[in-house]
Structure formats: C-alpha cells, structure tokens
C-alpha cells in the first residue's frame, strides 16, 4: 500500500490507522511494578523483561559505596489466553518460575555486587557498584539497570543535579530498574541524600499475536 493510499484510508477512518496500531501496541504492553497474578489477555508470542532493583546507594555518614545494578532477564515465550502466572516484584523481579532477576547489593564499603538474572534467553548481570569518598562531598547512588552506570557521575559533585530527577527511586517505565538512589546536596556544608534504590519491575509485551 502506498503512502497516498494509507492517507486515503486514514481520511475515511474515525481513528487513523497509525493511531490504531499505536493504541494496539500500547494495549499489548504491560508494566508490572507490584506482585500479582497476571492473566494472559491474548494468545501470542510475548517478550518478558524482568529487571531487578538497584542496590542501596552510599551515603554521607557511612561512606559506603554505590549499590550494584539489578540483573535483567529477557525471554520470548508463547503464552495462551486465559493462563495465569504468578508475578513477583520486590527487590527481585520474577515472572513465575520462568525467569527471574535479583537486585544489586548495597551497604558495601566497596560498592554493592550486581544482581543476577536466570531463565532468560539473555541474562544480564548488573554492574557492580563503586567505592566512593564521602569527604569529597561526592556521594554514591545506585543504578538498577544494566544500561546505565554511575561510575563517572561521582567524580564531579556538580553533575548530580542533572541526573537527580531521573536517578531517584523509580516510578513508571522510566523508573523501572533504571533509577537509583540519588544524592542531592543542598549546600557545601549540608547534604540531603537518598538511599533509595531503583525499583524492580517486569515488562510484558506482545510481539506477535496468535
């Protein structure tokens, strides 16, 4: 079908075709951030992504290192409409007994150990945290996804401000495993700090119906 034909079809539709496709894609993707029983809405091939939480970040008073990143398990699997699965989202993210990803470690002098992932077609181990030095007013944070690393962020205490909004404890899709404990210095002498870690979660997306 040519673009002109698509435009013609769209003009005759109450909801344009591309919008319908976008809506359909949205409806077949699920972001799971709580423990629950999940029922497969439609038979099809699904991509499951389990993301473990980030470990607790370091803080000023203890000089602990940054938290380890959560593991990430990615698996494509055929699911049948009406079947139910036990999903667990705590520090660990687990899609039934099919695939699981653990959180990174925290409360470590030298940085937490990265979480592990099992059962996926691809399993990513989270990055380890790093040692920090509190007395340079450079504080640690954790990160809960293999995509990001905070290894360079604490080399400049001014950099944190750019990332505070995105590196704090996560909410929604952006926060899924990507956010970590952030550090928010209020002045050169006083400090507020967050030891929250990036939230765990599961993304379920239908990639082929039937």
């Amino acid at each position: 079908m040519s673009w002109a034909e698509v435009k013609k079809v769209n003009s005759n539709m109450k909801t344009p075709l591309n919008t319908q496709i976008a809506n359909a894609m949205y409806q077949t993707a699920f972001l799971i951030t709580t423990t629950q029983t999940w029922v497969v809405p439609k038979t099809g091939l699904y991509k499951i992504i389990c993301v473990g939480a980030g470990g607790s970040g370091g803080n000023y008073s203890t000089q602990t290192g940054t938290g380890g990143a959560g593991g990430v398990a990615i698996k494509n699997i055929q699911l049948t409409q009406g079947d139910s699965y036990n999903l667990t989202v705590g520090s660990t993210a687990s899609f039934s007994n099919i695939c699981s990803a653990t959180s990174g470690g925290g409360n470590s002098w030298t940085g937490g150990t990265g979480g592990i992932a099992t059962g996926g077609d691809t399993n990513y181990t989270g990055n380890n945290g790093n040692t920090i030095n509190a007395y340079t007013t450079v504080l640690g944070a954790s990160v809960g996804c293999f995509i990001q690393s905070l290894s360079n962020f604490y080399t400049d205490s001014r950099i944190y401000s750019t990332f505070t909004a995105t590196m704090r404890s996560g909410y929604g899709l952006l926060g899924l495993g990507q956010s970590g404990g952030a550090v928010n210095l209020t002045s050169n002498t006083g400090a507020l700090f967050f030891q929250t870690s990036g939230g765990a979660g599961i993304i379920i997306q239908m990639i082929e119906e039937g």
Binding site: A73, N86, G90, S91, N97, S103, T118
Partner: peptide
C-alpha cells in the same frame, strides 16, 4: 538482597 514473606512454594514463583 530480598525477603520472601509469603507462605508459597518457591519453585512456583522463582526460576
């Protein structure tokens, strides 16, 4: 790194 407080069969919930 995590606490499981539910009384469940772990093998049905985790890999």
């Amino acid at each position: 790194v995590d606490i499981e407080k539910r009384e469940i069969n772990l093998s049905e919930y985790y890999h």
